[in-house]
């Protein structure tokens, strides 16, 4: 099976590190996706100007 892997993953330790990093990134992205997806803001000049004019009333998009 290892023959099919790219050279940088041939070493067992390299595979462990790569897997750990992928899992960590996946968890971080999952947390962000779970709690912040759909909360994006308009960041054109008008929207930001509105924000400066009235920060506390700015709607959630």
């Amino acid at each position: 099976m290892n023959k099919h892997l790219p050279p940088f993953l041939q070493h067992p330790l390299a595979r462990e590190i790569a897997l750990a990093i992928v899992i960590k990134l996946a968890v971080i992205v999952a947390i962000f996706f779970a709690f912040f997806d759909g909360q994006s803001v308009s960041t054109d000049a008008e929207a930001v100007a509105d924000r400066l004019a009235n920060p506390s009333q700015h709607p959630i998009h």
Binding site: A34, F35, I60
Partner: peptide
Amino acid sequence: NLTPGNIYGS
């Protein structure tokens, strides 16, 4: 502009 719930959860 988020809800406190978003931040408590994350």
